[in-house]
Each structure stands twice: as structure tokens, then as C-alpha cells.
Design a protein around this nucleic acid. Structure first.
Lengths: 176, 176
DNA sequence: TGCAAGCATTTTAAGCTTGAAATATTTTTG
DNA sequence: CAAAAATATTTCAAGCTTAAAATGCTTGCA
């Protein structure tokens, strides 16, 4: 009742250009991307909780720290993880509490805090990271041989597209 | 110093099967998927806040309700949105407060609450949905003509792969 | 030198999210 | 029919997240 006959014929056209102002395909794509991402994230959270009694934010933070031998500042971590500074402060506090992470002021600039894994943190992370890698491989196991690189490439293009759009929006706000 | 010569040659091989136990490609794919999803989500949240003083959870909830003429139960919404029941309760409370959503007990089963958009809610949602669709189209604007359906297809395969893995994990837990 | 501007981090207030426990109702079963 | 099991929702406690304000330090400049 809300799909008038007059519009029907266009349903077979997939080119957005032939349906000016209609972007349902992009919307569907976004929905599907979000669904995949959400399902994986939920499952990883669940398994981290079940198997290691920890959370995804903590795991992600430790993963960043593990990559750096010398430690990272709060600012660096927050940029890498794409979360706010305050967020890093909070999550780090929990990890310090558990003795997995070390936090000390930088020697030359007392504003800066340097965060690093403790020996115990590094040990525990290695165990979790190995399991995590298996979980991810398992979740993507249904993709055929050529699907993986193809998806990788398309998501690369997508990432650039997103960054471009965000940059455009930012530049627009700049002009004011 | 932590990349011994002996391992180097394999770096050119992309087939995981030739590096038993290694799933770095899947890991990179997951990271990229998550990055895309996170960047879009953050940008949409930002624009919803700036332009409409609202949040993504509220928008998503209204979007579900808009699809149903007769209203939906809390359980239905929570399943569709893949969030907990308690979450729906909270977000609905806010929307009822603002007069955008209506909530009433189902006539035949007093455990059930039926949620629906008010006239005002429906009106406001239409405006937001139109802008939202434009934003998404803009974010994906950098994808070439064939990229969109290709990505759609690959994400479909991915979704099935994930669902399979989650089902397997669930069945495993069942056996205990 | 002294002070203004800039930076890195923390704090704060508000809202989202979850899993689990509690509540209220309906359905099943003995 | 009554008790038990199942179901729908809400409440609760804990933790995550953010933007904005506050704090404390450094740097550049007059």
C-alpha cells in the first residue's frame, strides 16, 4: 500500500544515478557493514569475558602497548585507539590496579605520562592474543581464498572514501 | 631485531595455509573492518548531535519503529537492534519523555509493552532519516560503480561466516 | 624575567551498555 | 486446579564513553 505502481519499475535498476536522491543501496551497505562489525565485536567481548575475565577496551589497550618496547604516552594511545583521552585515563587506571600496566611521568616533560605493560601484563597479553587470533580466524573461516584480499582491498577504498568525506565536512566547518 | 632472517621469505606469501597457525591476514582484515565501521559511526553520532541534538541509539530505535505501522514489543526491538532488553527500556524512557514515542501494555498479554512512534516522533524522524541517508551516501561516495555491489556480496559472505562460527561455539557450549 | 598561550592529562557530568537479579504475568504440567 | 516452568520486562551495579571544564606544566615572546 505504500509502494505505488509508478515507482515499481525502478526497483530493478541498481544504479543510484537513475534514481536521483535515492541512496538506499549505500544505506543497506552501511547496515551490513555495521552488522558484521557488531557481531564480531560482541562475540569477542563475550569470549574475553568467559575465558579471561577481561574486557575488550582493556585488551585493545594492552595490544597497543605490546607493540611498543619503550611505552607510549596517553595521547599516543588515545589517537591510535580512536578514543578520548579521558577514556584512556580510566581504562589505564583499571589495568594499573591489576598490575598489568605501569604508568610513570616522562623524565623530561612532567605533563606527559608514559604507559607500558608490566612483565606480568606482557605475559598475560601473549596468551590472550594467541586465542584472540584464533577466534578471528574462526569467524572469517567461511571466506573463500580470494575473498579475503578482495575484501581487504574494498575496505581500503572504503576507508579512504570515509576519510575524504570527513575531511570535506571538517573543511566546511572551518570556513565559518 | 624481532624479525629474524629465517622468517622473512614467508612475508611474500599471502596464503595462510603456508604459514600454519598464522592468521595475521584475518586479523588485519578485522582491524580494517572495525576501523571503517567505527569511523562512520563516530561521524554519524557527531552529526546527529550537531544537527539534531540527538543520539545514535535514539535514532536507531526510532528507525526500527518507523518500519512498523502497528508498533513493536520491547523484545522485538531489542532483537532487531541486537542490544539488551534493559537497554531498550532505558532508551525508550528517554524518547517517551520527549514525546517522540508511545508505550502501552499489549491488550492480550500484560507482560508485553507495545512501543510506537507518536505523530511528532514520526515527523521528526522523517527529517532526520533524509539527512542521515545523505550522510551515508557521502561517506561511501568514493566507491566506484562496481565496488558497491562487490562489497555488498563479500559482506554477505562474511556475515554468514560469522553466524556459522558463533553457532559452532554455541553448540560446543551446549554439549557440557 | 614574567606572563600569555599552548599542551597533556585528569576530572566531571551525563548518557549508554551489559549481564544478572528481580518482578510480574502467562503457560505448562502433574 | 495448583505448582512449576517459561516468558517479557524492569531494575541494578558496574564499567565504558564522551565532551567540556579544570589542573598543572612548558614554551615562546615581550
Amino acid at each position: 500500500m505504500d509502494t505505488p505502481e509508478a515507482i515499481r519499475p525502478l526497483d530493478r535498476e541498481t544504479k543510484a544515478s537513475e534514481r536521483p536522491g535515492d541512496h538506499k543501496d549505500e544505506l543497506r551497505l552501511w547496515l551490513r557493514l555495521l552488522t558484521c562489525s557488531t557481531m564480531i565485536e560482541r562475540e569477542i567481548r563475550r569470549r574475553l569475558r568467559e575465558e579471561f575475565r577481561t574486557t575488550l577496551p582493556r585488551f585493545d589497550l594492552m595490544a597497543q602497548l605490546e607493540k611498543s618496547a619503550t611505552g607510549m604516552t596517553v595521547g599516543e594511545v588515545s589517537q591510535r585507539l580512536m578514543v578520548s583521552n579521558g577514556n584512556v585515563t580510566t581504562v589505564v587506571a583499571g589495568l594499573v590496579e591489576e598490575g598489568l600496566v605501569d604508568k610513570r611521568p616522562a623524565p623530561h616533560d612532567r605533563r606527559v605520562q608514559v604507559i607500558s605493560l608490566t612483565a606480568s601484563g606482557r605475559r598475560q597479553f601473549r596468551v590472550m592474543a594467541e586465542r584472540h587470533e584464533e577466534w578471528i580466524a574462526d569467524l572469517f573461516a567461511g571466506l573463500g581464498g580470494s575473498d579475503l584480499p578482495a575484501l581487504m582491498r574494498l575496505l581500503g577504498t572504503t576507508k579512504q572514501s570515509i576519510q575524504g568525506a570527513i575531511r570535506r565536512a571538517g573543511a566546511e566547518a572551518e570556513e565559518a
